[in-house]
Computed example of a mutant assay.
Amino acid sequence: MEADGYRVVPYDRARHGDGPWRVVAAVFAEYGFPFAEADYDADVLRPEAHYPPGWFLVAESPAGEVVGCVGLTDEGGGEFELHRLYLLPAARGKGLGERLTREVVRMAREAGARRLVLFSDVAFEHAHRLYERCGFRRNRFRYAPDPWQSREWGFVMEFEETGKEAR
């Protein structure tokens, strides 16, 4: 998927290296969030060890640099979860967040999802508007299972058996 020279592609260790790690670390620093190489944040250092093949995507700049990322997991029972949607500040406002989100929705639907969920820190208000624009609805609040108990909103998208979003 490509537009304006930006591409959304599956993560490849040889090509993208620690690009997702650098993106998430930069966004966490921007918001003053703690970030660590081990445990809770290890999935963005080695996406290939935490996500099924092809289920962790990156957004590349026209120069081939990783400027964003997103992941998808199968949680069982027809429920899938969107993880780690992050974009560097310079990459925002170009439609990349929506492209990454819609690609994960497509992948989940093709994998037979009945429900797609995500959790997002309460500080990411712009992302919350994006999720709602893409068809998610805010459905709950939680304290995240991270070491610092972040406050998060939960979002959900339900699918009909035909593969269309439920209304």
Rank of each mutant, 00 (worst) to 15 (best):
A26T: 15
V117R: 08
R22D: 12
A63Y: 01
L88A: 10
P34T: 10
L87W: 08
A25W: 08
A29G: 02
R92S: 05
R102N: 13
A91D: 01
G17A: 13
H16T: 07
V70C: 13
L87D: 09
S61L: 06
D41M: 01
R114D: 08
V44G: 09
G71Y: 06
G68S: 07
A111W: 10
L88K: 05
A36T: 14
L45M: 13
V104M: 14
D121W: 02
E81Y: 00
P10S: 11
G93F: 11
L87A: 03
P53D: 13
V58T: 04
D121I: 00
Y31Q: 02
A36V: 13
F33K: 04
E98R: 15
H50Y: 12
G112E: 06
G54C: 09
E79K: 08
P89V: 09
R84K: 15
D43S: 14
F80M: 09
E79A: 12
A49H: 10
A63M: 05
L57M: 11
Y86E: 06
L72Y: 03
R15C: 07
V122G: 00
F33D: 12
V58K: 08
G95M: 10
V117N: 02
A14P: 02
L100E: 02
F56E: 04
A29H: 12
G93D: 01
R46G: 00
P10D: 06
G112K: 01
G78R: 03
R102E: 13
G76W: 01
L96V: 13
T101G: 11
S120K: 01
P34A: 11
G77P: 03
Y11I: 00
G76R: 01
A63E: 15
A123Y: 11
D74Q: 11
A29C: 01
H83F: 14
D39W: 05
G64D: 02
L87M: 13
R22W: 10
V44N: 01
E48K: 02
T101F: 01
P52Q: 13
A111T: 05
H83K: 15
M107N: 00
G95P: 09
H83Y: 15
P34Q: 04
E79T: 14
P20E: 02
R115Y: 03
A25Q: 14
R84L: 02
G97F: 03
A26D: 12
V122W: 05
L85K: 10
P20Y: 07
V105Y: 04
P34V: 07
D41W: 15
G17E: 11
G68D: 04
E65V: 11
G112V: 10
S120N: 12
R109V: 13
V104F: 00
R15P: 02
R109C: 09
G54K: 06
E30T: 06
R13C: 03
C69S: 15
G93C: 10
R92F: 04
H50M: 00
A63G: 14
V117D: 12
E81S: 08
V9T: 11
L85Q: 12
H50S: 11
G17M: 03
V23W: 07
S120L: 03
E60M: 10
G64L: 04
V58F: 02
E103N: 06
A59E: 01
